[in-house]
């Protein structure tokens, strides 16, 4: 019922308030919103082999005193017709989806186990989950090269134990990319799940047991549905960045099948075709728009809930 205090005394405050609001607003508008507008604009431009690598959309022709607009839809045509792009888009979505599911399958039981452990050990486990997140992401992905490569730790161990007699091909495979994504993003799955599971009222499970539900059934009928917001948040936090992932496939992935992030930066730095790269970026953004909006709604609700 009560609105914010600062809002109530707005008459005396409006100048200061406006300034405080304007600073972050201005920053984000200039450095976050405008760049997307520029990407959108350039995705309709013609490529020119000069710096910058695109032709202007609007041109003021002095002699005829007219503003001429040249829209080029060819960049998007390339996107839809060239099977390379469609292929990499689908492959990226597949990799992200499979990694997300694997992450959930590993992360959920871990989050559950932490949430149900004694409060004293809970903090220790949480610290252990978060600790890798504070160390370099790049180096953690790099660590897997040492484990997965032909004469790497895994192959050496299996060979010396006599389990295999030929080294397995592990590095530069889909498997390596899944491992890399699951490994890097696991904390992002566990943390929202944990913060959801930790809030559950355990008497609900006692009530379910009292009414005759076996633990297994009680889990599927009570705990799982209640943890849905955590599942959705965790999956989005993994899925969205994974689709555009660049570092992991570059270090661990196949060379014959690229992910969209790799193609994007190859177009940008290699081919120097900024308009097509922009069109790819817009395409990727459109694909991810729905999940991003979903995530924002979740984030909003979380904040509202934490307010009393």
């Amino acid at each position: 019922m009560a609105t914010s205090t600062f809002a109530a005394v707005s008459t005396a405050l409006s100048a200061g308030r406006r300034l405080v609001t304007a600073v972050p607003y201005f920053w984000l508008a200039v450095f976050f919103a405008v760049p997307f507008a520029i990407v959108f604009k350039i995705s309709f431009s013609y490529m020119v082999p000069a710096q910058p690598g695109y032709a202007p959309l609007f041109e003021w022709l002095e002699e005829s005193r007219r503003l001429v607009a040249t829209f080029n839809l060819a960049n998007y045509q390339v996107l839809l017709q060239d099977s390379l792009y469609l292929n990499t888009f689908l492959y990226s979505l597949k990799v992200a989806a499979i990694s997300t599911v694997l992450c959930l399958l590993l992360g959920y039981p871990m989050a559950y186990a932490i949430a149900r452990s004694a409060p004293t050990t809970r903090n220790l486990f949480l610290m252990l989950i978060i600790l890798p997140f504070w160390t370099s992401f790049l180096l953690r992905v790099y660590a897997w090269i040492g484990l997965l490569k032909t004469n790497g730790v895994i192959n050496n161990t299996l060979l010396s134990l006599g389990i295999i007699d030929q080294p397995l091909v592990l590095l530069y495979t889909d498997f390596a990319v899944y491992v890399g994504i699951v490994y890097s993003y696991l904390p992002f799955m566990i943390l929202p799940l944990y913060s959801n599971l930790e809030k559950h009222d355990l008497t609900l499970l006692e009530a379910a047991a009292d009414l005759g539900a076996r633990p297994f059934k009680a889990f599927f009928k009570i705990t799982l549905p209640l943890s849905m917001p955590g599942i959705v948040a965790g999956c989005l936090l993994v899925f969205i960045p994974a689709v555009g992932e660049f570092v992991i496939p570059s270090l661990l992935g196949r060379t014959d099948q690229l992910m969209i992030g790799t193609v994007l930066s190859a177009q940008f730095f290699g081919a120097r075709n900024w308009p097509v790269a922009s069109a790819v970026a817009i395409g990727l953004l459109l694909v991810l728009l729905l999940p991003i909006l979903l995530f924002q709604r979740y984030q909003q609700r979380e904040l509202e809930a934490s307010r009393r």
Partner: peptide, 23 residues
Amino acid sequence: LSAMTTAPLVMPEVIMGIAMLLL
């Protein structure tokens, strides 16, 4: 403002990178 503050949390880095450079 709220949308602009939460979007970077999940925005793929390649998109952020390309957008910033073009800006």
